[in-house]
């Protein structure tokens, strides 16, 4: 179904196979991508799967919801393309997506 790339803050890329229906947080934690914690298990209530969507992809993924804003906007690294990976569902449309990780998860 394709791949997605998580880029660590220091530039290290991690390419992960897309699995339809999984969240990006689950993909990252299942494949041991460092820098994604997902402490609340995918309920958008801990803010520890913060990712910054590549500019070229933000119209495809869409911007964050109010639910995500509540958590992610507390991070000093929050930007306009910040999302919670647990709220992004893998689908064929995301093949080739690149997201960047912040230096720290809150």
């Amino acid at each position: 179904m394709g791949t997605i790339t998580f880029v660590e803050h220091d530039g290290t890329p991690h390419q992960v196979e897309l699995e339809d229906g999984s969240s990006l947080m689950e993909l990252a934690t299942n494949h041991g991508v460092p820098g994604i914690d997902g402490d609340c298990g995918g309920e958008a209530s801990c803010g520890t799967c913060h990712v910054i969507v590549d500019d070229a992809w933000i119209t495809t993924t869409g911007t964050r919801t109010d639910l995500e804003s509540q958590m992610v906007e507390m991070s000093p690294e929050c930007g306009p393309n910040s999302r919670l990976a647990c709220q992004l569902r893998a689908s064929p449309a995301l093949d080739g997506l690149t997201v960047h990780l912040p230096e720290f998860q809150m």
Binding site: E43, Q70, M74
Partner: peptide, 11 residues
């Protein structure tokens, strides 16, 4: 996944 830190805005 422990909840000792709480969840939501008051985490």
């Amino acid at each position: 996944n422990h909840m000792s830190f709480g969840f939501g805005v008051h985490r």
